[in-house]
């Protein structure tokens, strides 16, 4: 395929993915808006007032970056895992497989589709948070960089999940039993300074902690970890997941007999 044809194929996949999640917005965009509004109202306003300050900010301000990141992570991941698995399930993935579209473009298209949904939901949650608190923006470049890289990483994770998934249960297992615990324990609601030393060390093994804190640093200027480590870790994960996802596609794992 010529370069121009390759990019038309990429654009087609991306537009189709965006069209999918905007068509079913009551399932994709509305629930995180409602859930996060409830988090803001309950944890931020009602309980947060009694907790007091954290990291030099009101509790509400402290948890907003983490909640934005949580919605970006969950939505990037689930967009790709559900979309690609559905395509496998109803065999529409064959439309792509019989075409000359290179595998790396398929992977890139689906990944950026997940990123688009993650960022879209992240933006909605950010706008909603402004009804509850004021947000300063300490470092715009870092904030955007971290949120984009995180969305890419979890989109790739969702893709690998979809490749291995054989049923809809397999698609929901990872978000329920791995992603949600990692996110809740990744410093969304608290600073790891509050934890005993042992649990602080354990928390340092959680990659989500780095992303949440790097994002929080970009907005509030406070972090439990060195943000450059966060960028290195996310970048390494992206390279590894892209390589692994592409390898699975080339092998035809789960999609070719």
């Amino acid at each position: 395929m010529k370069n121009s044809e390759i990019w038309i194929a990429f654009y087609t996949i991306l537009v189709r993915e965006i069209r999918r999640f905007t068509r079913i917005w009551p399932q994709t965009l509305l629930p995180p808006a409602i859930t996060m509004s409830l988090y803001f109202a309950i944890f931020g306003n009602l309980i947060g007032d009694r907790i007091g300050e954290m990291g030099g900010f009101s509790y509400m301000q402290y948890i907003v970056p983490g909640l934005i990141m949580m919605s970006v992570i969950t939505n990037s991941y689930s967009n790709v895992s559900s979309s690609f698995f559905s395509a496998k399930f109803q065999h529409s993935v064959q439309e792509l497989l019989v075409s000359p579209t290179p595998n790396w473009i398929i992977l890139l298209g689906y990944t950026l589709g997940g990123v688009a949904r993650g960022l879209c939901v992240g933006l909605i949650v950010t706008v909603l948070s402004l009804f509850f608190t004021h947000l300063a923006l300490e470092n715009l470049f870092l904030t955007v960089l971290v949120v984009c890289l995180t969305a890419v990483m979890f989109s790739l994770g969702g893709f690998v999940n979809a490749i291995y998934a054989k049923s809809f249960d397999d698609v929901s297992i990872v978000p329920t039993f791995i992603l949600t615990p990692l996110t809740y324990l990744g410093g969304v609601f608290y600073s790891i300074d509050l934890l005993p030393d042992f649990w602080q060390s354990i928390s340092m093994l959680n990659p989500v902690l780095y992303m949440v804190n790097a994002f929080r640093y970009g907005i509030l200027g406070v972090s439990d970890i060195n943000v450059y480590w966060a960028l290195v870790i996310v970048s390494v994960f992206i390279v590894l997941l892209f390589w692994f996802g592409l390898r699975l596609l080339n092998q035809g794992k789960g999609i070719r007999n």
Partner: peptide, 10 residues
């Protein structure tokens, strides 16, 4: 039209 896109057709 989507299928055409997969073949790089404008």
């Amino acid at each position: 039209v989507t299928q055409a896109g997969f073949y790089g057709i404008s």
